[in-house]
Design a binder for these strands. Structure first.
Length: 822
RNA sequence: GCCCGGGUGGCGGAAUGGCAGACGCGGAGGACUCAAAAUCCUUUGCUCGAGAGGGCGUGCGGGUUCGAGUCCCGCCCCGGGCACCA
């Protein structure tokens, strides 16, 4: 496609200028109003894919737009540079992950530069930078000292493919690893955890006030999973001094408890099992603890196999409501690490209990009257209580309250809040991550590495082999050290931290990357935080955002960040995904459409414009065989802007007339449309408004009668300023041509619409009969209801259609429409 | 199963309860050209009609309203998230 200008030369020129001159460097003490714009910390997977391009197109638009609005905009860049893909690639190539990673970083950086995205490059941060690692480790130690990091043995998710432990968050619903797809196994290992559960309530509560997509807020709430209920005792039948403690959210159904269930991991199981049942229970427990999470959860469909997934323990407990003895079962549908690991079972009102009761022939007693027509199964809805002694006749809410009081008085009951959220397992048995700065001494136990010895950096002379085991674990020089307390030989921790820890505080380092003696200066950080606009993919809706929120709250609480707001990301925008052939575009799927080809041909501005124009920014984009044509269309639009700014085929007249004035009014209306579009993330309509304006201008200036020259010049300048955040290279170039020696378009102020210029001289009013359009009339925009009615009824088409009859009713909504009901 | 989104021309999409389809892609016709590309102009929801003009149209069925793509009720379909959390 021949272009009227040299796209590549223009883009290179401006990219070099922005980079070399540090145009978008910004000081913490800048006197202008501060604005922190941030795109999510990218993993350096190589040159950018269209998802990155989309992200940085939006981010750069925000940066340039807010700058033109007179703000000091912090726009930093860096790399989430630790992670498994680099390690796997290094194993394959027999090289070091750093070599691989830094090559990928250079590629990604080149892509964002070629996109024309602007950053304060002095603030660049990357996770495997020892300067960053030092403080990542210092934070770990501070958490450790504050009791927020602890070591515990726990059943963990072990992925055989990745040869590492995974966080709950990295295990998919079907029990497979999110990365490798392998079936995750359960193992008991000593691991490091962060006590994120201490913050469950605050993390849940603070979600409400965030200006985030509702969808993301809901996901966060669901993930935290708060549930209120009662914990109480079910005394053992044989020894009423001992009891099985259970948690329930439905104390009101207590009269319907016909059995109890403990998890296979329950500590009291040994006491509960009688000799007769021991063999069967042992078999079940072994199966439950050794089989994968998948098998344990898979059979939820219609409760199949339930008879094999539970066994009678031989013991009985006493239902405090009925004083009846009920059997205790062990079953794998009860989880050991939630609540008390034991439940009261109410088959009539709980689906799972119902299925289990059916499978084992257990008694079912309804305690809530199901509605008319309800036939079979558990009923968990509203209704009046029956078969429930003192609760009879009460609705669910009142019965809950009464039952809770009863349990408090008779069964050591306490109201209790449980969360689905678990502590964050941060240990990873991998090499390419930030080492956990801990030493194990035979005498002194767990000893933190002194801060002055940080960072603990992995050695370079490692052999990345195919065993899958971290080379740190077997590297004698790394592993063997001395105890910081006593100086005797000791072992280093060889696990590294989950890479989500790196992305949990990078935005704080961006705000102050200059401090050498601390992770960030809280006074400097507070000058930018919280992030005013965070932009990233929906795939981080739970993990990254939850962890980063936790980090900030914890850092404030341990005294590292006084004065910071407790939520790091005030506004979040989640962009849609790019899909090719219906599936998400990602490197692992090999379905990337590299942007480099577009940079070389249509140019970055056209590609940016495409991403803005193709649809609502939050929606997914289907990359189809029509896409290249749409991108060409965007390039065509830019060409037309260029030609018009060179008065290509234009004619002029000297005296400004009414038509010229109306065109300028159209420009001012466009200012409103574009500004509104940018403010409410409607970039596609903002671009459309500019296209419409160009159509108007070019039609007007190319008529033989011509256009008023000064009016065209004013219009062009306004158009270029509105287009500047979207297509920065071309607008910068044209502005320089039109205003040599003056400051650039991006340094000029965002246009303000003149209120006197946005109204039209006349507008088209629609006249309907019975809601069908019968006439269109030119009327003044301020026409009154009476006048509107009068001119409507006088219109020839209306007179003809009505045929002299008096209308029953006239609805006038001046100046848009009049509807006549005959 | 539960919780969110979303169903509008051939396609991407637009529309504070007020002219459905802005803008773009694609298509058709034309101008320029020896020719093509590029560019420019016209046209383009479906349908009946030679035409003027008419009818029908926002997943389906109801409702509210002078007026519904938009609000309410009940369905269907697609996408995403969660899913033994007691």
């Amino acid at each position: 496609m021949p272009r009227p200008f040299d796209v590549t030369a223009v883009e290179k020129k401006w990219q070099a200028r922005w980079f070399d001159e540090g145009t978008y460097e910004v000081d913490n003490d800048d006197a202008r109003e501060h604005f922190y714009a941030l795109c999510m910390y990218p993993y350096p997977s190589g040159s950018a894919h269209q998802g990155h391009i989309r992200n940085y197109t939006f981010g750069d638009l925000v940066v340039r737009y807010q700058t033109m609005r007179g703000k000091a905009v912090l726009s930093p860049f860096g790399f989430d540079s630790f992670g498994l893909p680099a390690e796997n690639a290094a194993i394959k190539a027999g090289s070091h992950p750093r070599v691989f990673t830094e090559a990928r970083m250079a590629e990604l950086k080149s892509s964002v530069l070629r996109l024309g995205a602007v950053f304060d490059w002095r603030r660049e941060v990357y996770s495997h930078d020892p300067k960053y690692m030092k403080w990542a480790q210092a934070i770990f130690l501070a958490f450790f000292e504050a009791g927020l990091a602890y070591r515990a043995e726990a059943p963990v998710n072990w992925c055989p493919g990745c040869a590492t432990v995974l966080a709950n968050e990295q295990v998919l619903a079907d029990g497979t690893c999110e990365r490798s797809g392998d079936l995750v196994q359960r193992r008991n290992l000593e691991q490091w955890f962060f006590k994120i559960t201490d913050y469950a309530e605050e993390l849940l509560h603070d979600v409400d006030a965030l200006e985030w997509p509702e969808r993301v807020k809901t996901m966060q709430r669901n993930w935290i999973g708060r549930s209120e209920g009662v914990e109480f005792d079910l005394p053992l039948e044989v020894d009423r001094g001992r009891a099985l403690r259970v948690f329930t959210t439905r104390p009101d159904t207590g009269f319907g408890v016909t059995y109890a269930v403990v998890a296979p991991e329950h500590p009291m199981l040994d006491v509960l099992v009688t000799d007769d049942e021991r063999a069967a229970v042992t078999r079940l427990v072994e199966r439950a603890t050794q089989t994968s999470e998948l098998e344990r959860t898979a059979s939820s469909d219609a409760g199949s196999g339930l008879e094999k997934r539970g066994a009678f323990t031989g013991s009985f407990v006493v239902n405090p409501f009925t004083q009846e003895s009920v059997p205790v079962y062990v079953a794998d549908y009860v989880l050991g690490n939630y609540g008390t690991g034991a439940i009261m079972a109410v088959p009539a009102e709980d689906e799972r209990d119902f299925a289990f009761a059916k499978a084992h022939g257990l008694k079912i007693v309804r305690t809530i009257e199901p509605p008319e027509g309800f036939t079979e199964g558990a009923y968990s809805g509203e209704g009046a209580h029956i078969n429930s002694g003192f609760l009879n006749g009460l609705d669910v809410a009142s019965a809950k309250a009464a039952a809770t009081t009863f349990l408090e008085e008779h069964a050591n009951g306490v109201t209790k809040v449980n969360y689905r959220l678990r502590d964050w397992l941060v240990s990873r048995q991998r090499f390419w991550g930030c080492p956990i700065p801990i030493v194990y001494c035979d005498v002194h136990g767990i000893v933190p590495v002194p801060v002055e010895q940080l960072p603990v950096v992995a050695p370079d002379d490692v052999v990345m082999d195919k065993s899958g085991q971290s080379p740190l674990a077997t590297h004698e020089g790394f592993r063997n050290t001395t105890c910081p307390v006593c100086g005797e030989p000791a072992r280093r921790e060889t696990d590294t931290m989950d890479t989500f820890t790196d992305s949990s505080w990078y935005f704080l380092r961006y705000a102050d990357p200059f401090s050498e003696d601390k992770a960030f200066d809280p006074v400097q950080a507070a000058k930018w935080m919280p992030v005013d606009q965070y932009i990233g993919g929906i795939e981080h809706a739970i993990l990254h955002l939850l962890y980063a929120r936790f980090y900030v709250k914890a850092l404030i609480d341990i005294g590292w960040a006084p004065g910071l707001e407790r939520e790091p990301f005030r506004r979040l925008f989640t962009q849609g995904m790019i899909r090719l052939d219906g599936s998400k575009m990602s490197k692992s799927k090999g379905n990337l459409v590299a942007p480099e080809g577009y940079f070389d041909t249509v140019g970055a501005d056209a590609l940016r414009l495409f991403h803005l124009f193709v649809g609502p920014p939050a929606d997914d984009v289907d990359w189809t065989n029509q896409t290249d044509e749409v991108i060409d269309g965007c390039a065509r639009f830019l060409d037309r802007v260029y030609r018009l700014s060179h008065y290509d085929e234009c004619f002029f007249h000297d005296q400004k007339n009414a038509e010229d004035d109306e065109v300028l009014r159209e420009v001012h209306r466009t200012i409103l449309k574009v500004t509104e579009g940018l403010e409410r993330w409607s970039y596609n309509t903002a671009v459309a408004a500019l296209m419409e304006l160009l159509n108007t201008l070019s039609k007007w200036a190319r008529r033989p009668e011509g256009a008023h020259r000064a009016t065209l010049d004013d219009s062009l300048d306004l158009l270029l300023r509105l287009l500047a955040p979207m297509a920065p290279h071309l607008t910068a170039e044209m502005w320089e041509e039109r205003h040599p020696g003056e400051r650039g378009v991006h340094a000029s102020a965002w246009p303000e619409a003149d209120p006197a210029m946005v109204t039209r001289a006349s507008v088209v009013m629609v006249v309907q009969i019975d809601a069908k359009v019968r006439a269109r009339l030119d009327v003044p925009p301020e026409i009154s209801e009476a006048d509107a009615t009068r001119v409507a009824l006088a219109a020839p088409e209306i007179v003809a259609t009505l045929g002299g009859a008096t209308p029953q009713r006239v609805v006038a909504r001046p100046p848009r429409l009049v509807n006549i009901i005959p």
